[in-house]
């Protein structure tokens, strides 16, 4: 017999209702039950960072988080960071401009991690960005461009180039 529980999850500012087994991870709930497939499964073991999303504003790995654990928390995924009107988040724009990806599969995790990295104040130098972005593996090898993109977005946030963007980044 399979036990399911009812969950109401706050994802990208919207409530999502679902009935899942308690063992279902947040990652699988997003991808298999909620059609939010922007969050990627790379290893399912906490070793690659592709599944990174935010819970209450902090970056976490959704593959090692039970969906049941995050009921009542604010979950943000890659689908939820662009502005309502569709304008890209400065980090997304910087990733495109700097060609900070190739295959694109680690990219949502990189971007979610980068947004948090800047917010945490860990984007002060290239060395710091490298270390604090090391939880997100990129096999295509876009690391140089990822560092450049994070740096650019962080500088934008710091100097308030766009007030609207600053509010989102910082």
């Amino acid at each position: 017999m399979t036990r399911t529980i009812h969950l109401s999850l706050d994802i990208n500012g919207k409530q999502h209702e679902l009935d899942v087994e308690p063992r279902v991870t947040l990652l699988d709930a997003l991808r298999e039950s909620l059609a939010l497939t922007g969050t990627k499964k790379g290893c399912d073991q906490g070793q690659c960072g592709a599944c990174t999303c935010h819970v209450d504003g902090k970056r976490v790995l959704s593959c090692l988080t039970l969906a049941a654990q995050v009921e009542g928390r604010q979950i943000t995924t890659i689908e939820g960071i662009a502005a309502e009107g569709g304008d890209l988040h400065p980090v997304q724009a910087a990733f495109i401009e700097n060609d900070a990806f190739q295959c694109g599969y680690c990219t949502p995790g990189q971007i979610m991690s980068a947004v948090a990295c800047i917010r945490e104040g860990h984007a002060g130098s290239e060395e710091e960005i490298r270390e604090y972005m090391s939880g997100n593996l990129c096999r295509c090898g876009a690391y140089n461009s990822i560092v450049a993109a994070v740096r650019e977005a962080a500088e934008m946030a710091a100097t308030g180039v766009a007030a609207k963007d600053k509010a989102e980044v910082a």
Binding site: G46, G49, T52, K58, R59, V60, L61, L64, T65, S113, A116, C117, E120, H122, Y132, S134, G135, N136
Partner: peptide
């Protein structure tokens, strides 16, 4: 230890 994400968890 680990990564920033894991340290948040």
């Amino acid at each position: 230890a680990a990564s920033a994400q894991l340290r948040n968890m």
